[in-house]
Amino acid sequence: MLLQPTYDPLQADVPAVHPFSPAVGAKRNLGRNCADPYEPDVDADLRAKERDTREHPDADYMSKMQQGHLSTSMRAELVLWMDAFARHLGGLPEGTLCRAVVYLDRVLSVRPVPAHDEALQLVAAAAVSLGAKYEQSASGRRLDAQVVEAFLGTTVHAVEEMEGELVMDLSCVMDGPTAYTFVEHFTRFFEREDEFLVRSLALRLVNLTLAFFGFVGRILPSAVAASALFLARQILGVQLSNDLEEVTGYKAVDLMGCICSLVELLPRKKL
């Protein structure tokens, strides 16, 4: 799910990105391929939800709520742990990790958590489970007891109890779109194989941002998604059937801060 980092975890607070801007992406043309009369409403609903302040983690929660006990490197390691936990559970819906990390940051914005592995990993595991349940609400699947024991040294019941606490911490507001949601939304009319490759790379770029605290609470999910798509198209050299500025509502020049931060996260070629 998550690209392995090529950075020193102690520098996980490096990327600087643009702050929230209600002007960017507010107007857009859905493009010639839109035949569904409800498409504008779907897009407007996603845009409105991502601007709901209840969905936003606090960009300063480490110094405020966590009072400096949690560092950016500790958070980065926790996100990588979540990735490993999700992969060992297996068969989780696409988008689970992205949503789980959003839940984690929102919870840490309102709940002080002791800065030790047991407490943090229990919250993180509950966030992964909640993210999976939201992304695939029809599934009645429970956590694998052996995986939970191996990763946490506790029971499925303990994780499920923590899930209930997290739902309350999140004020039951859990359906906000993530950057993953927006990549899927922006690419819903892709048809060619090379366009699917752009989408796949963009999703990997989105996942690469998850471990870096510099993206938390500082940029809208739609802007992260749009930046990933602009960069993926450039890397692969693909001419898309629809203009990305038209599809996303963003101009590349407005996203340069985020795009440059994404470039910094790319693996470096060894000389």
Rank of each mutant, 00 (worst) to 15 (best):
L70K: 01
R142N: 09
N33R: 12
G214E: 05
V110F: 00
A158E: 15
V247C: 08
E245Y: 06
L197Q: 13
T72H: 08
Y38P: 06
G249P: 02
F196H: 07
L203D: 13
M168I: 07
H88Y: 07
Q239P: 00
L229K: 10
G31R: 08
V102Y: 03
L92T: 05
L271N: 10
L244S: 08
M162S: 04
Q136K: 08
L203R: 10
T6M: 12
D45T: 10
L197G: 09
V263I: 15
L205N: 13
T209R: 14
V42K: 09
A12R: 04
L70S: 09
K64V: 01
V238H: 06
Y7E: 03
S241T: 09
G217Q: 05
Y7L: 07
E165M: 11
S227E: 05
H18F: 11
F196E: 13
T72N: 12
M168N: 02
M82N: 05
P114A: 13
S73Q: 02
S241H: 02
M174E: 05
P37V: 13
L89Q: 14
R188Y: 01
N33E: 07
A44D: 11
P9L: 07
A150W: 02
E135N: 04
D58F: 00
E195D: 07
P221F: 08
G153N: 12
A202F: 05
N29M: 09
T155P: 10
A126I: 10
V42T: 11
G140E: 01
L208R: 09
G176R: 01
Q11F: 12
D254N: 12
A16C: 13
A76W: 02
P5N: 02
D13Q: 02
E55M: 07
D243S: 00
G95M: 03
Q66M: 03
S73R: 00
E39M: 14
Q66L: 01
K133F: 07
P221W: 02
K251G: 12
